[in-house]
Simulated scan of single mutants.
Amino acid sequence: MITSQTGGLGLLGHPAGHSKSPEMMNAALQMMDAPYVYLAFDVTPAVLKQAVEGLKALKFKGWNVTIPHKTSIMEYLDGVAESAREIGAVNTVVYQDGKWTGHNTDGTGYLRSLKEETSLDLSKQRVVILGAGGAARAVGYALATAGVPKVTIANRTLDKADRLAEHLSRWTSTEAIAISDCQDEVREADLVVNTTSVGMFPRINETPIPADWLHHGQIVSDLVYNPRETALLQAAKLKGAQIHCGLGMLVYQAATALELWLDKPVPIQLMKQVLEASLSGNKK
C-alpha cells in the first residue's frame, strides 16, 4: 500500500515507456515489504539536469539510468564507483552517507547470471566478445576482473575494438586482442558473447555470425533478451553448445541495484517470473 511514508525509486531514460523494470521492481519491493515504489520517467537529454535535481529534492533513495543518459549523468553526481568509472557508464545511482554515487551493475549482473546458469570456471575460458559498444565494455570489464585469460573483441570497426582491447589489457591476467574477422577465434573459443543488438525483436531471424562457426562444447551467450532464445542461441543449441540468454543479466543487474539501495536479500526468482510473463505478454 502506498502511504505518505512511501519512498521513491525509479528509472531515467528516453524513451522509457517500453521498460519492464517497473513491473519487476515493484513485485520485488512488495515481496520484500519495502516501503518504496519504482517509477519510470521519460527524460530527454535537455532536461536531465533538472530531473536529477528533482529526484534529489524529492529524496529518492536512488534510481536506474538507461540510454541515452548513462554517461552524461556522471556530471550531476557526487562520485562514481570504480566499476562505473572503468566501464565509462552509470546505470544505478545510490544515495548513501549524504552523497549521490553512480554505480554500474551491468557487468556484475552478467557474471552472476552466467555463473548461475553455466557453472563455468572463468579462469580457464577463451572468450570472444561480438561488438565493442557499451555492453561489450561492461561485459569485458567483468570478465577481465574475474581473471579470464584471453578476450578477443570482434567488431566491424577495428578502431573501436582496439580501444576496448587496450583498456582490458590493463588487467595483467587477461590478454585482450581486437579483430574484425573472427571466424577462427570463434571456432577456438570456449565462450562466445553477443553484445550487439543483432537478433533482437522484430529482426529475430538475424545472427551476428554464421551458425557453422559454432560447435559442441562451447557456451554461447547472447545479451539480447527479446526473444529469449535468439536465432544465434537456437543455432548454437542445434550444434550442441550450451546456451545462455540475456534475460538473466537483466534480472541480476536489477537485483544488484536493489541490493545497493536496500541492503537486504532480493527475490530473484520472482523477478525472473515477472519479467518472463511481461515479455510473453508483449508477443500476444
Rank of each mutant, 00 (worst) to 15 (best):
I243L: 08
R170P: 01
A277R: 00
T196E: 11
V274T: 14
C245F: 14
N194R: 00
D159T: 15
A176F: 02
G109H: 09
L258N: 04
M24Y: 10
L55G: 01
K115N: 08
G107Y: 00
P202D: 02
H69W: 02
I2E: 14
L9R: 06
T145G: 11
G147W: 12
I179F: 00
S119C: 11
Q242E: 12
N26D: 08
G133T: 03
S173H: 14
A138F: 05
A235N: 11
L258E: 04
G10I: 09
G246K: 09
H215E: 13
V139A: 00
A165W: 09
L214W: 08
D106L: 01
D159S: 15
A189C: 03
S19D: 06
G54V: 00
E188S: 09
Y110I: 13
S19R: 04
Y141Q: 15
K283W: 06
M24G: 13
L77S: 07
T145Y: 12
V148L: 05
T195E: 03
I219H: 02
D181P: 02
V37E: 00
G54D: 01
T44H: 11
M200Y: 01
S123M: 15
A16D: 02
T3N: 07
L214V: 06
F60T: 04
E23Y: 15
S83R: 15
T118L: 02
L58Y: 11
L247N: 03
T3M: 04
W100I: 02
S19K: 09
A81Y: 06
G8E: 03
L39H: 04
I153F: 07
A165C: 07
L238W: 12
S278Y: 09
G131K: 10
K160S: 12
T6V: 05
V65E: 13
E276D: 14
A189M: 05
M271W: 14
W261I: 13
E229S: 05
V151G: 00
M24T: 11
I204G: 01
G98W: 00
V94N: 08
H14S: 14
V148T: 14
Y225C: 07
F41I: 08
L9V: 09
L270R: 04
I179Y: 01
I219K: 01
E185T: 07
E206N: 01
K124C: 10
N91I: 02
F60I: 06
N282S: 08
K283P: 00
N155R: 02
G10M: 06
I129M: 03
D121F: 10
N205F: 10
A176Q: 03
G62I: 06
E229T: 07
D181T: 12
S123K: 15
A135W: 04
G79K: 12
V127I: 10
P227Q: 02
M1C: 14
G131C: 03
P208W: 13
F41C: 06
D212N: 14
Q273T: 15
A235R: 14
A28H: 06
D162E: 15
R85H: 08
T174H: 02
L232Q: 06
E116F: 00
L77H: 07
A34I: 08
P265V: 05
V90F: 13
R126F: 13
K70Y: 11
G107I: 10
A46S: 14
R156W: 00
Q242F: 06
E86W: 13
W261P: 03
